[in-house]
Write a protein that binds this DNA or RNA. Structure first.
Lengths: 358, 358
DNA sequence: GTGAAAGCGCTAACAA
DNA sequence: TTGTTAGCGCTTTCAC
């Protein structure tokens, strides 16, 4: 290693043309797998490419193409801080992406309404869009509309909650089963050896992410902490009001519940309930997604841990993957893996996390 | 919002030239803040830029410049899995970065030897390098050599352990005080209300990161868990053998130590000690940096939590910042913030995290 | 089937 | 102090 030596001047299309004894245009045809080149010529060009170790300069290619990327984020229209964070990241990123000839926008679709989402996807103009990132449930209608869009050459990312059956280009989000397991491990360790009951607040049985979290949670609770009973879920549909209404009954008698796993959105409802009915002994609470509200609850000691995924990373990753799909260029899987973040009040990121630019 | 409308054809340098009634060259001079333009002309151009909402196309600019970036990572030469991970990330990234006309290399310097590091920095050829990322201690000699390099126009990043006094361009790494606090919080919660003593293994008093972790750890232990006594540190110099040698004495009588915070490198020494002297009651162990070894210990239940920072993120972030510094382009602070990751065995990333490409 | 030439948006000699 | 011009690496008409 040592101090870098002089750059060895990467080979260009001109070099290929020279070595393969063809014109630039032909090299380009081969590079882009366009028809109208004799097989023998194609091979000569490939030969030269291999020989020179050529790698295409995507930036120059896009410049010449005048290509622009148009990406759309399809998000549920719901009172939901985390979705708001994502929308905010999209618009924050949009400015910086202009210089990369990339345009990103958001569209909200009625929440918990698979048909509305399917319709919205169906209504998309595949000729005016190179990629779409979708956060929605995995129902047949959604799945089919995505498959159709995909067949029209639009890259489709399932965001936060996977829709594997749709044949989407990629999934961008955490491993929700692992997230559930993590929540269980923390819950068990924080609660210690005393017996008790744990309440799970979930969102919707339609939502794959919620289902998976519950799955992972139950698995680890049953295996590692059998002295803790996990109650049947409160299905809160990410709705704070609904959650606040359901909780009084779900919490049962005073002291019955020693832990709460808020595995879906709607933390406001939980916090409201706790404020109105302060328990004698504070339960261990583990919630999802770092938002202004959950951050405050964590700081105040009401929440004990928050499991989260980075909204900025989510958006950037989706954009990178959609772009790579358009360019047919490779992606760095490790970079695109969304981590299951654990936040305690000690490792909260600075509140100014929203300040951008240098 | 809604489906994106037709791209409005971004303004180019030609448009600016036309509107400002100057030549392309003048526009370029203004854009790049080069001298030799009358103030009045500068203003006319700025006027036009503002009017048109121009944003420069970085890709085109770099293409024209034919600019290449040469970055160097200066890492300690020590038997240290985490440093190896970083070196590996550098070489993995190097391949993909070639298409971005960016060259990154590594150089190892004797560990815990400030003079050697200062000499290495001093020996760098500032004309053959646009940026350097350095992981090393904050001593006067190091600080001065960095300041000198910086003055020669080389971007300098302090990596993992900050060197603020050097005037480095930026620091890339976690907030080590927060990391120490986080470790303490986990330690306290995992140990529960019983009294006991906690051992801290640190690296070197020269290393700012180690110092900061210790600081944060002590703070939270004293404040939130006064029933747990924190022992004076074992100074292991990141050396497994040394640590294994020091531990028998440091652990004291059987059962005296109920928790261990391995705040620096050299986990192999700790694990070796535990294997040779299996304690009756397994202590709660919190270690740093996710490596093959610590991952295995976590999976096996020997470690209870690992606090880490993503080596890939570290390297990519350093490169992005060095490049932004060269281009004088803005950076996204939120994206560059390195998170203090908490790993339990439940949220470990897939082992194949090293597999790259698509 | 193949090639010559113009041009994407920007920069950098070299003139004037 | 300012302008002309020739590229950077790649794509894309439009001829041959």
């Amino acid at each position: 290693m040592g101090t870098p030596d002089d750059p060895p001047a990467n080979p260009t299309v001109n070099d290929i043309a020279r070595v393969a004894r063809v014109s630039l245009a032909t090299v380009d045809r081969v590079l882009n797998a366009r028809p109208g080149v004799r097989q023998i010529t194609v091979e000569r060009v490939h030969q030269a490419i291999a020989e020179l170790g050529y790698v295409r300069d995507t930036a120059a290619a896009n410049l010449a193409r005048g290509r622009t990327y148009r990406f759309l984020f399809l998000l549920p229209a719901a009172r939901n801080e985390f979705i708001d964070l994502i929308e905010r990241e999209v618009s924050d990123l949009a400015a910086g992406l202009k210089r990369d000839r990339t345009q990103i926008t958001c569209q909200r679709v009625p929440a918990f309404d698979p048909m509305a989402l399917a319709d919205a996807v169906g209504a998309l103009d595949a000729t005016a869009l190179e990629g779409v990132a979708i956060f929605g449930p995995e129902t047949p209608s959604v799945r089919d509309s995505i498959a159709r869009l995909n067949a029209q050459g639009v890259a489709v990312i399932s965001l936060i909650s996977d829709i594997p059956s749709s044949g989407r280009t990629a999934y961008v989000g955490i491993d929700n089963i692992a997230a559930g397991r993590t929540a269980a491990q923390l819950m068990g360790r924080f609660l210690g050896p005393a017996e008790g009951a744990v309440l799970v607040i979930t969102g919707s049985m339609l939502a794959r992410d919620h289902l998976e979290r519950r799955l992972g949670f139950d698995e680890v609770m049953a295996r590692d902490f059998p002295h803790l009973k996990v109650r049947a879920s409160v299905e809160g549909r990410d709705d704070p009001d609904l959650i606040a209404r359901l909780l009084p009954h779900a919490m049962g008698a005073e002291g019955e519940i020693c832990g709460i796993y808020a595995s879906a959105a709607g933390n406001a409802g939980l916090l409201q309930h706790l404020e109105r009915n302060p328990p004698l002994r504070a339960p261990v609470i583990i919630a999802h997604e770092l938002t202004p509200l959950s951050r405050a609850a964590l700081t105040a000691g009401v929440f004990d841990a928050v499991i989260s995924q980075d909204a900025g990373h989510l958006v950037r990753s989706a954009v990178r993957i959609m772009r790579a799909d358009c360019d047919q260029s490779p992606i760095n899987l490790a970079q695109e893996r969304i981590r299951t973040d654990i936040y305690l009040k000690e490792n909260l990121p600075p509140e100014t996390g929203l300040l951008k630019g240098a």
